[in-house]
């Protein structure tokens, strides 16, 4: 009787509102996590032929569901566009947002979203045809550039070219598919977007080797999950689930050994993280095996990356900035103690 309850909901709409309840309690009572994802972005969030959501961002949802509910499949995915994502978060339509969203000052403060960390360090790059012989962005003076309108990339591009005293001719496009068409029809010499998107686009070309992604990355696009303002415990849970995945890679915990390593290892930190020793889970109102469940369900950070974006996939991205800190990257989890 959905319609009737909806009617009741409308009637209640103007009743006094007591603010958001505890998100963790809501999720546990519902038995399902409401996770906002992209409607479709290569490597990050899409559906397979059976309608199952997969991708890098989707695995963040699954990890949090496993940590909170013990079941990585207890997720309802809410596909969101760039325009609807923050309202969906602030209105409570979703529990958290895992939608390749760049962490910026204004979004964190003005839009009342709290970013819990950076799951993927992206940046704006340039894709161009190898035959043009361009090896650096500095050679692009006077180039025609395909650029998505109304994005931060558009602003970054014009700022970059202006500050370097170069000119370019923009070819405005609306979507990746349009970009592919324009670029392959040689309407533009260069296509600029986030480097991960460029890699996915390049992988779809008939002859990927005829195209190069230039080495310069001209912007910082730290993508991460976001939660609502005003629920610190939920912020901690989502943030530390991400940290647990990153720490798991550092500590050598994988989806295969997550269930057993705690009993065989001598490392106290692994024991604490997997819930064999101590009571880290209880501090956030979770079960002792919260991190163990999350890692067993989706694997550690490295596994997730390799599965969806890494060099073995079609997209074929290097770890780069997303490598562990001891490998020269930026992924660094605070200690579990």
């Amino acid at each position: 009787m959905k319609f009737l309850r909806n009617g009741a909901a409308i009637a209640l709409a103007f009743a006094p509102v007591s603010g958001f309840a505890d998100t963790l309690e809501d999720v546990q009572a519902r038995g399902q996590l409401l996770c906002g994802v992209n409607t479709g972005l290569s490597g990050f969030s899409f559906t397979d032929a059976d309608g199952n959501w997969t991708g890098f961002d989707v695995d963040m949802c699954r990890a949090v569901a496993a940590a909170v509910l013990g079941d990585a499949d207890a997720v309802e995915y809410i596909p969101l566009t760039g325009k609807t994502r923050f309202t969906a978060l602030s209105s409570g339509e979703i529990d958290f947002l895992s939608r390749n969203t760049t962490w910026t000052y204004s979004r964190d403060s003005d839009l009342a979203a709290n970013f819990v960390g950076t799951s993927y360090y992206d940046g704006q790059g340039f894709l161009t045809r190898a035959e043009l012989g361009v090896s650096s962005v500095m050679d692009l003076d006077g180039a025609t550039i395909c650029i998505k309108t109304g994005t931060t990339t558009e602003l970054t591009l014009s700022e970059f070219f202006r500050s370097n005293g170069m000119t370019y001719e923009p070819v405005p496009i609306e979507s990746d598919s349009e970009a592919q068409q324009q670029y392959n029809a040689k309407s533009c010499d260069v296509f600029t977007a986030d480097a991960s998107a460029l890699a996915a686009n390049r992988a779809s070309f008939a002859d990927p080797d005829a195209h190069v992604i230039l080495p310069e990355i001209i912007s910082k696009e730290p993508l991460g999950p976001a939660v609502r303002h005003g629920d610190d415990r939920w912020h901690d849970i989502v943030g530390w689930t991400l940290n647990a995945l990153i720490a798991a890679e550092e500590l050598g915990i994988t989806s295969e050994n997550a269930r057993t390593l705690g009993d065989t290892t001598n490392s106290p930190e692994i024991k604490r993280l997997l819930g064999v020793d101590g009571d880290l889970g209880a501090m956030n109102g979770l079960s002792a095996t919260w991190a163990q469940d999350a890692i067993a369900a989706v694997g550690n950070y490295g596994e997730i990356f390799d599965r969806h974006l890494g060099t073995d996939t079609v997209i074929g991205l290097e770890r780069g900035l997303n490598a562990q800190w001891f490998n020269g990257g930026l992924q660094y989890a605070p200690p579990f103690r």
Partner: peptide, 24 residues
């Protein structure tokens, strides 16, 4: 445009599958 997966929304979603990226 508001994130419902109608035929056009699904087209975008399907094209995000790396098996089918590039199909228009």
């Amino acid at each position: 445009i508001i994130g419902l997966l109608d035929p056009l929304g699904l087209a975008n979603n399907i094209r995000a599958d790396s098996a089918w990226t590039g199909i228009v």
